[in-house]
């Protein structure tokens, strides 16, 4: 009984991880594109990216999730709740990731661009070989925070009927009559996932840190 109980929730854990692993990179891709457009695009492109960010960050994620879900699983596009939910979460996250990345790009500073252009690199080469490698390092700590937010926000697709951890816990609590145990197990799993994510990204930040002490 206990092993059934656990394996049922563990299947939900797989769904939670899958939703996160779709939403996070999808949000990163769009967020990075928007951050680059915001920092290096012409005035109108930059302004549009800024407005996108303001709108997306001004509305609760669950509200956006519902709007996007009904668009992505509507008549024009018809995705499953799993895909519509994951991609919607990714879009929500893209605005926050854009803010992180554009801050990091700005923090690298205009001087690096000048120096890169001065040896004859093109603008795109300068962004690719000089600005981005530095910006990404700067972005890792705030980005790991966003990663655990997306992991936690993946619980919102519960509302779309996707069988992730919370949905499983609810079904279990109904079938076993042990709600405290069911939700307690779910909480424990979330806690471990968030903890492991943070640890992994701390490790990544440590690994990519540039040396400052003479060797």
């Amino acid at each position: 009984m206990l092993s059934n109980f656990l394996s049922y929730i563990v299947q939900g854990t797989g769904v939670t991880i899958a939703v996160t692993l779709i939403a996070l990179p999808f949000g990163l891709l769009i967020g990075l594109l928007l951050a680059l457009l915001y920092n290096y695009g012409n005035r109108w492109v930059a302004r549009s990216a800024g407005i996108y960010s303001l709108l997306m960050r001004g509305v609760p994620p669950i509200v956006l999730l519902f709007i996007l879900y009904f668009i992505l699983s509507g008549r024009l596009i018809n995705l499953s709740p799993f895909w519509a939910g994951s991609l919607s979460l990714g879009l929500v996250s893209s605005a926050y990731q854009m803010e992180i990345l554009r801050g990091a790009l700005a923090a690298v500073g205009a001087g690096q661009m000048t120096a890169a252009r001065a040896i004859g690199l093109t603008r795109l080469q300068a962004i690719r070989y000089v600005i981005l490698p530095q910006a990404i390092r700067l972005a890792i700590p705030p980005w790991s925070n966003e990663a655990s937010i997306v992991l936690k926000d993946s619980s919102l697709v519960y509302a779309l009927g996707v069988p992730e951890i919370l949905r499983r816990a609810q079904q279990l609590s109904a079938t076993t009559g042990q709600p405290f145990l069911a939700f307690g197990a779910a909480a424990l799993i979330y806690f471990c996932l968030v903890f492991l994510t943070n640890r992994a990204l701390d490790y990544l930040a440590e690994k990519t840190k540039l040396p400052t002490q003479p060797v």
Binding site: Q112, A115, R117, A118, G120, T122, V130, Q134, R137
Partner: peptide
């Protein structure tokens, strides 16, 4: 412009080495 800058070297007040 990139070809021009390639032929003209520049050294800045604050070095501007690529930090990474």
């Amino acid at each position: 412009e990139d070809q021009v800058r390639e032929q003209i070297g520049m050294v800045f007040q604050n070095f501007l080495l690529f930090n990474h």
